[in-house]
Simulated assay, not measured.
Amino acid sequence: MPETLISGRFAGKRALVTGGTQGMGAAILRRLLAEGAQVATTARAAPPPGLVPSLFVQADVSTAAGVRSVVEAVTARFGGLDLLVNVVGGSAAPSGGFAALDDEIWQGELALNLFPAVRFDRAFLPGMIARGAGAVLHISSIQARLPLPEATLAYAAAKAALTTYSKGLSKEVGPKGVRVNTISPGFIETAAATRLIERLATRAGTDAAEARLGLMRSLGGIPIGRPGLPEEVAALAAFLLSAEAASIHGADYVIDGGTVPVV
């Protein structure tokens, strides 16, 4: 179960969570708000009813112009950041293996899964370094080490690049007071994943439970017997961003129910 909320743990902290209107991003946004932070977020679509960030900027952050518009709005409102969580990502690549992935698809996967983090870090880390404090968290994927070739090879490669970039960045900015870590989720049952399960069940003429098991089998199984929850990722994110994790730096935390079968 997710850890108990710690009221006020992030009081006075200014945060940006990209991709914070759904799934893991929304769960992290809610968590940081509940624990006292001012939290900005950005996405292509507006937040759903009931999700009220401190600042919302509608933008496509797979583009340099989109990132720039978010940076300008956040800087105008907050003046800078203490916490930066790069969640935005995903894949729209077709099935069919490597041959179905043309240059445009590869560029799109890198633009969505790698470059937003690079650009936001470049914009906000100088301020953190100047203050000698800050925490950055990148949401990668277990596909960085367990790639699925049928449709998400480009996504997996982009996430592997994100994980490697994060490690290198931690070496540079750690001595300057800024911590950088990565979370690599496995199968997390977000609302989007639930919709996928329902579509697979309809297509196969079965029920959601069987379709869910089928997805789990495609990953090689999940030893705990179920997908993870967005709130569980949010609990881990909150810990890694907090002062309690002050000596955790340059790490990649896998949260996959035991899916990755190696040490």
Rank of each mutant, 00 (worst) to 15 (best):
V70D: 05
V70N: 08
V71W: 11
V71H: 08
E72A: 14
E72T: 01
A73M: 04
A73P: 00
A73N: 02
A73S: 09
V74I: 02
V74S: 02
V74A: 08
A76G: 03
A76H: 13
A76E: 15
R77S: 12
R77Y: 06
R77I: 05
R77V: 09
F78Y: 15
F78W: 06
F78E: 13
G79C: 06
G79H: 06
G79K: 10
G79T: 07
G80W: 04
L81Y: 10
D82I: 12
D82Y: 12
D82R: 10
L83K: 00
L83C: 00
L84F: 11
L84S: 14
V85K: 07
V85E: 08
V85M: 06
N86Q: 13
N86D: 14
N86S: 14
N86V: 08
N86L: 12
V87I: 14
V87R: 10
V87S: 14
V87P: 01
V88K: 02
V88E: 04
V88F: 02
V88N: 03
V88G: 03
V88A: 15
G89D: 08
G90D: 05
G90P: 00
G90N: 05
G90C: 04
S91N: 12
S91C: 09
S91W: 06
S91F: 07
A92G: 15
A92N: 14
A92S: 14
A92V: 05
S95V: 13
S95P: 05
G96W: 08
G97E: 09
G97K: 07
G97C: 12
G97F: 09
F98H: 11
F98V: 15
F98E: 10
A99N: 09
A99K: 13
A99Y: 12
A100Y: 01
A100G: 04
A100H: 01
A100P: 00
L101V: 01
L101D: 00
L101C: 02
L101Y: 01
D102M: 03
D102I: 01
D102Q: 09
D102F: 05
D103V: 03
D103T: 06
E104R: 05
E104V: 02
E104P: 00
I105C: 05
I105M: 05
I105D: 01
I105F: 01
I105V: 15
I105W: 00
I105Y: 00
W106H: 10
W106E: 13
W106Q: 11
Q107R: 15
Q107Y: 05
Q107K: 06
G108V: 04
G108I: 02
G108H: 04
G108C: 07
E109C: 05
E109P: 10
E109T: 07
L110Q: 12
L110I: 10
L110W: 13
L110D: 10
L110N: 11
A111V: 07
A111D: 15
A111T: 11
A111S: 11
L112V: 13
L112F: 08
L112C: 05
N113V: 13
N113L: 08
L114N: 11
L114W: 12
L114C: 06
F115M: 14
F115T: 03
F115E: 10
P116A: 02
P116C: 02
P116E: 07
P116F: 03
P116S: 04
P116V: 01
